[in-house]
Design a protein around this nucleic acid. Structure first.
Lengths: 394, 394
DNA sequence: AAATCTTTATAATTTTTTTAAAAAGATTTG
DNA sequence: CAAATCTTTTTAAAAAAATTATAAAGATTT
């Protein structure tokens, strides 16, 4: 059993704060870690001696003496592997402690339902790490975001990515890669990204909607990610809300997902095209290099009327679901994130209309709907921060 | 501005722990307050000297030396006034520090929408206190639970109980009573009661449903009451879920409340009786001493088929709403509380059926539905603990 | 440009926690 | 059944951390 001393904990906390906030003064670190200034001063000096931290220069004046600020050392040879998976594509990147990209994003076409997905994944990660020539003892760990019911303590995904030998997913990967591995649900990670690096920074109660194949949800409650008693909180897409009686992939009828998934939107588009609707999608869909969902989103961004109409119908349903969430959670804001948030501005009117229609004004009036500024990077950034959050830096 | 020192804070924390848990050993207090044993020992000894705490006797053996346990002193002349309001009735009781009843429950028929409700309330409370002969400086404060949108920091109820002179509700009452006053929403208080004294004790994530005139909700998240960013979290009864298009009191259509409020159930019963249904309610309703809702609940307890049928319809709708909540919050358990929980066992089958029908099994399987054991006392107990939580004990 | 005001950084003091030791009581064993 | 052992509480001593106070640095004002 590894025992973590208080000193180690504080070192890790300080590094974590600097990782999230970049430049910080001693006073700021002290406030954030809730430890006294003398203790922080001593610990930071130790970390400077060990090259983890460098002096950055003076902070802008706030009226008196300017504070010295500190930064994580980009030259320190400590690296983080970040992986973001979705149903069909897996992306990977390597960062240093300053969140600078050491190895640019690499893509792998990988069907998450593939029987050999786990083996392919670990080969891919290993190959990329080897290609960089980085020594494994300089890599702090691997953070992986993935769809499905993820048990983060056990390191299992109940929905997919089961190792062929029946072993534990995280253990399998840790063994195969020779590195610490941390896995989490994609929507949870996107919420963490918005909390640590995005528009949910410094906010206490925020709902982050992951608009993608399905409609995921990550909940920031009291300033930290809420996971529920068995880790499955935020199963937004399967709440009973649809008026249609379409069967959902989960086996139930009436789930929100049957009206709002990107796949359903694509299907609706194809149906409309078959019925003779005019749209640039009929051209776009011929290019099979990209997935139809991406073509659909492109069409939306290009203001294609049919695509926008279909998207708006889905957005209205999402908005109705959000109205329920607002009543229950009374959040400060709701962040639209995930790959579908590319079409963010197109989504907003229908969502806001639904919220106005279904919310008691007093409850909704303080809740703002905002668009993510991270979009593509969110999941990778959060995968990396998973590793930072679990490392000890000895 | 009153400054609270660390020492005062710890004294209050210790008293609070003893108030919630009754007999505790020094070690247990130390763990609960997360303060060291030497510090706790010293502070408890100080509180014993001041008569706040008494030795209770030795704890049962756990294998080694038996621990001394401590209790709040029932003879200490410190009292708490607890008030619980609903739409038509207000109840009041006075406890000592050991939660023993010093003045038994008194009732006041008070329509919460009455223009002079606040004045009547303060006269009532004052009269009862005077009747006991207790000195005001021996009373720690008054805790009041009430329906409506309550802003606990400002001390305002936006829905009702507005002082005629336009002043602040809590300030008005504090002035009129000459005592510290704390107000909170009834459903929030019932949830606090279950957390501190009931079946949600030691649990982290629990939803407490207040079945009454409407269907209220208090959420325990990470072991404490979650209020949302502007204090209105848990507005369960106005989520869009009903298939009917009945107009809700909130001005919207489709709210859960239009199918599940006790008033709707009574209306349904009356309609069925008018249509010729046979039921003991036709007799019961003639007695106008009690409210029809109480008669309805009595009929349910007496297993009247019509009443049970009506209740089950409502319960099914509540269950559908709870299915949504389970997906979002993934709670450890859901507690059915409030006056409607008297009919608890009758509610369970329909609620569980709805949950089975609308929940993904993996998510719902770990969530248990339990009945409150506090029912009547819940709100009064929590009103009192409001006062304890805000007092300083100097 | 000197004086004042703010804020950071360091030092001294106090408080609190941690660790260790002692005491009390239950359980086991000869 | 009594002595010995084992647990746990209680008290005491040492170490760590947080407050408080002071000094230093730099910005702003007069």
């Amino acid at each position: 059993m590894t025992v973590t001393t208080k000193g180690q904990q504080l070192r890790a906390d300080i590094i974590k704060q600097l990782y999230y906030r970049k430049a910080l003064s001693l006073t700021e670190i002290s406030k954030r870690t809730k430890k006294s200034l003398p203790l922080i001063t001593a610990t930071v000096n130790m970390l400077i001696k060990e090259q983890y931290i460098i002096e950055q220069g003076l902070a802008p004046s706030t009226g008196g003496r300017r504070a010295q600020t500190f930064l994580l050392n980009p030259k320190k040879e400590k690296y983080v592997v970040a992986v973001a998976m979705d149903q069909l594509t897996t992306r990977m990147v390597i960062y240093n402690l300053a969140q600078e990209i050491v190895m640019p994003v690499k893509n792998l076409d990988l069907d998450i339902q593939d029987q050999e997905a786990v083996a392919k994944l670990s080969r891919f990660i290993n190959r990329q790490i080897e290609a960089t020539g980085l020594a494994k003892n300089h890599i702090l760990g691997v953070g992986i975001g993935m769809p499905g019911f993820v048990n983060i303590t056990e390191g299992i995904n109940y929905s997919c990515l089961k190792p062929a030998d029946g072993s534990n997913l995280r253990q399998y990967l840790a063994q195969a890669l020779g590195l610490p591995v941390h896995i989490d649900n994609d929507s949870s990670l996107i919420a963490l990204a918005e909390l640590n690096f995005g528009v949910a920074r410094d906010k206490k109660d925020v709902l982050v909607v992951n608009i993608g194949w399905g409609t995921g949800l990550g909940m920031i409650v009291n300033g930290s990610l809420y996971r529920g008693s068995s880790g499955y909180a935020g199963e937004f897409s399967h709440i009973p809300l649809s008026k249609t009686s379409n069967l959902c992939s989960c086996g139930k009828v009436g789930c929100l997902e049957v009206d709002t998934s990107l796949l359903v939107m694509v299907a609706n588009a194809e149906k409309a095209l078959a019925d003779g609707s005019v749209s640039i999608m009929s051209e776009l869909f011929k290019d099979e290099q990209k997935h139809k969902a991406d073509h659909f989103l492109d069409a939306v961004v290009k203001r294609d009327p049919l695509a926008i109409a279909i998207l708006s119908d889905a957005a209205f349903q999402i908005g109705k679901g959000l109205a329920t969430l607002i009543h229950i959670m009374n959040p400060e804001s709701i962040v639209l994130s995930g790959r579908g948030a590319k079409a963010g501005k197109m989504l907003l009117p229908a969502i806001e209309q639904a919220i106005n229609e279904f919310c008691i004004p007093r409850i909704a009036e303080k809740t703002t709907i905002v668009l993510s500024k991270l979009i593509e990077d969110a999941e990778l950034m959060a995968s990396a921060s998973l590793v930072i959050a679990h490392s000890l830096f000895n």
